[in-house]
Each structure stands twice: as C-alpha cells, then as structure tokens.
Write a protein that binds this DNA or RNA. Structure first.
Lengths: 130, 130
DNA sequence: ATATCAGTTTAGAATGATTCTAAAGTGTTG
DNA sequence: CAACACTTTAGAATCATTCTAAACTGATAT
C-alpha cells in the first residue's frame, strides 16, 4: 500500500484513491494482461466502481511512465501488460489470450535501420490458430 | 486486365467493376501498404469513386483469400499489405509508415507452443522512434 | 489545520474507424 | 434473356476510445 503510493509518487502521479486501487490490482506481483474493459470488470467484481474514463486515463498514465507495456494486437481492443521486461507473446485471437514469452528470443538477420531512424523496440508476436 | 479478372475468378470473386479497379491498383506489381481510407483517397484521385463500404468489403474479401496480409499496428487503422510473402516490418507510428523487411529474419529461442495450439504466423515488428 | 490551486475524476457527449442493413444493381448460368 | 445469387451502396449503427467542462481532492503554503 505504501509501496504503491511510493510507486505513484516516484512517477509524479498523485496517489489518488482510484490510482491506488488500480495500481494495487495491476502490480500485485502476478503479471497480467488487461484491456480497459477487462480491468473495469475485474475491479467492479471487487466493488471498486471507477469510471471508464479514469481507467483509460490511468492505463495511459502508467503506460507513459513505463509501468505498463502496450500491445495493439487486434484493432478493437488494446492490451496492457504489467510485465515491462523485454519479452514477446503468443497470441490467440480466437480465444483472446496472450501468453508471455520470457525466454531469450533472438531475432537474426535484420537489415539496417532506415536512415535517421532509431529502433525503439522489436516486437515478436506468435499468432496461434486461424 | 484479363489477368486481374482471372485472379478474381480463381478466388471465387466475381470480377465486378469495383473489384477490378481495386485489384488493378493494388496488384500493379509494386508492393503497397494501404488502409481503407488511404485506398479510397488514392482511387478518388484517379476518378474512381467507390463507396467506403465496398472498399472495406473488398479488402476483406482479398484478405480472406490470401491476396493481402493484414497488419494491426495501431488501434485506429488497419493496414493491408500487398506483399503476401513471409516477411516482416519496420514501423514508424510517428510518421505512419511501414517498410517491408524481406530479408530472411530468423527467430531463435521460441519456447514450445501452448498445448493444443498451432502457430499460424510469426510477426516481427521493428518499431522506430518514440 | 485550512485555504488555495493544480492535478484528477467523471458523466455524458463526441469521435472515428469499421460494420451492418436492406434496397437497388449486376455478373453468371441455363 | 430470364432468374437469381452475389455485390454495391448510402446511411444508420456500433463500439472502443477520447474529449469536455464541471465537480472533486491531494499537496503546499500560510
């Protein structure tokens, strides 16, 4: 709880009731993949009714501060991943699940980066099914 | 023109005026990345006014038949790629561009595939900037 | 403590890509 | 060329996400 407040403070985010609830859920030690919708549902189950706008705001605040990874896998829902380490994913569009691949994946054979550009990150998505 | 009709017929797609126009543009030999919007704009420049609904329908028909690859990179626009070979991409969200990586990229170190699942495709996206 | 104010939350409206509807149009086949 | 299944289309509908502007609250100075 105090560590959650610390976490927020150290990212220049006021530890408001809503942020504390959301951060406590997200950063409980178990890696999670959430969408705004799924997070809202999950918190509602726990009797924490936080407006969707705030959930969106908060997910983005956390993302902007590197507390979450953002994954755009299907056009109609954005996933946020509490595991911010360098890692990749198995993704099943059919079953709507995401599994972290924490193993050391190596991508070999990349051509040179386009002029005046820098690589921000390399994302490997292993699509299942279809 | 007749090859375009053949292409459509061989995919059980009636060679309608609209599909011929769209296919002629997309499959002119130069690999392209389009969104429904960009395609509509591009065709409009050429005086081909095709309804957006048809453009969406057609892109999906082509995609369903493997004539296009689909790329969901940002949540608010889906890209279609006329290069259907196995390949990967450089992507700049900032500048909204996509460059094919046709070189042979190898992904090493994948863990085993989740039970009862099969790998459909592996997608490597090299995000630039940010 | 308390006033003050910038930072937050929120309901509800707005946005915008995409999909749906159902009516009119058009290839195809016999 | 008749007949029908497949297509196209305008416009409405959908739905995740963002915006707005008003009410609220954590932090800071007094």
């Amino acid at each position: 709880m105090n560590d959650i407040k610390q976490l927020l403070r150290s990212n220049a985010l006021r530890p408001t009731k809503q942020r504390i609830v959301i951060a406590s859920y997200l950063f409980d030690g178990n890696d999670k993949h959430v969408t705004a919708e799924s997070l809202s549902t999950e918190l509602a189950k726990r009797k924490h009714l936080i407006s969707l706008a705030t959930i969106y705001n908060t997910l983005h605040d956390f993302y902007e501060n590197g507390l979450l990874k953002k994954l755009t896998l299907s056009a109609d829902r954005v996933y946020f991943d509490t595991n911010t380490d360098d890692h990749h994913h198995f993704y099943s569009e059919k079953d709507q699940f995401l599994i972290d691949i924490n193993k050391n994946i190596k991508v070999n054979g990349l051509p040179k980066t386009p002029k005046n550009k820098k690589i921000n990150k390399i994302e490997v998505i292993v699509h299942l099914d279809k």
